[in-house]
């Protein structure tokens, strides 16, 4: 290429081996359609992730038997594990497809078949795409915001100790991927449990100097049906969270605050 142009240095050009990756994908044409399974074989390249596998299928949507099929529908956006879109079940476990690297999934078993399936606790839209809007409804229910007077210039905000910021920041890293809800044994149709993500957000805003004006409302909301009491403390949320949020700590803290609020309400309201 000489000095001419920008050539993106990607390892794909060096890989010529005939090795192929086997992927089995659960597919479902619509919310009410029957689920089926399709198997694909994709040429191996080092450093592939699951989203690049799905991209390869879109380029050549033909299954392992040579039958023509359709590109797989799935949610994705940033591809760097910050937008929270691409959560799915990979080898049965909930994770982000973008940061699930094929080499790591296969480990020392290069012939293993990788399986992909939609998250199991949310209604399927199509293939690997599911409807996770329940989380956003929950965030509304706990008023996860700071009720500022207005967006006009009212001067600097209140001072805040760095220690408070250091507690709030990790909670604010929640990417709404819903993996904490997917892996939670208590998050299901029967309980209608709110899930760890929302509880953590309630804590985040209760800790904000201005956001704490809604503290009591949030604590009362979390004592509603499906609230914090449904937590069974299996702690899967904190294990599975791709952003390592201190979710169990948030649940514990909010558990105390909700209880205190309920007692207070019982004697004063």
């Amino acid at each position: 290429m000489g000095t001419a142009t920008l050539e993106v240095p990607v390892t794909q050009k060096t890989a010529t081996s005939a090795r192929r990756i086997k992927v089995e994908i659960r597919r479902q044409a619509s919310p009410d359609a029957k689920a089926t399974t399709e198997t694909f074989e994709i040429p191996y390249r080092p450093n592939m992730n699951i989203t690049s596998l799905l991209g390869e299928i879109a380029l050549n949507p033909v299954d392992v038997s040579g039958r023509e099929t359709t590109p797989v529908t799935y949610d994705s956006n940033c591809l760097e594990e910050i937008c929270g879109s691409c959560a799915m079940l990979i080898d049965g476990k909930a994770m982000m497809a973008c940061s699930a690297l094929v080499d790591r999934l296969l480990g020392d078993k290069p012939d293993k078949t990788i399986t992909l399936a939609p998250l199991s606790k949310f209604p399927v839209v199509r293939d690997l795409a599911v409807d996770r809007s329940v989380l956003f409804e929950n965030l509304k229910a706990v008023k996860a915001w700071v009720p500022i007077d207005g967006s006009y210039d009212l001067g600097a905000g209140p001072r805040q100790q760095p220690q408070i910021q250091e507690q709030r920041y990790p909670l604010s890293n929640c990417i709404s991927c819903t993996i904490c809800m997917e892996v939670c044994p208590q998050f299901n149709d029967a309980t209608g449990f709110v899930g760890a993500a929302t509880i953590a957000q309630a804590k985040l805003f209760n800790m904000d100097p201005a956001g704490s004006v809604l503290k009591e409302e949030r604590l009362r909301a979390l004592a509603g049906d499906g609230g914090i009491q449904e937590c069974g403390f299996a702690q899967n949320c904190v294990q599975a969270c791709p952003k390592q949020l201190p979710l169990t700590e948030a649940i514990s803290d909010m558990g105390r605050d909700v209880f205190v609020q309920q007692v207070k309400d019982f004697f004063t309201r």
Partner: peptide
Amino acid sequence: PAIIDLLDRMGVPFNRTPEGL
């Protein structure tokens, strides 16, 4: 500067100095 102040008031967890600024 006014936009930063507004974001601060909205609860953005900006990094802080020891004095809380």
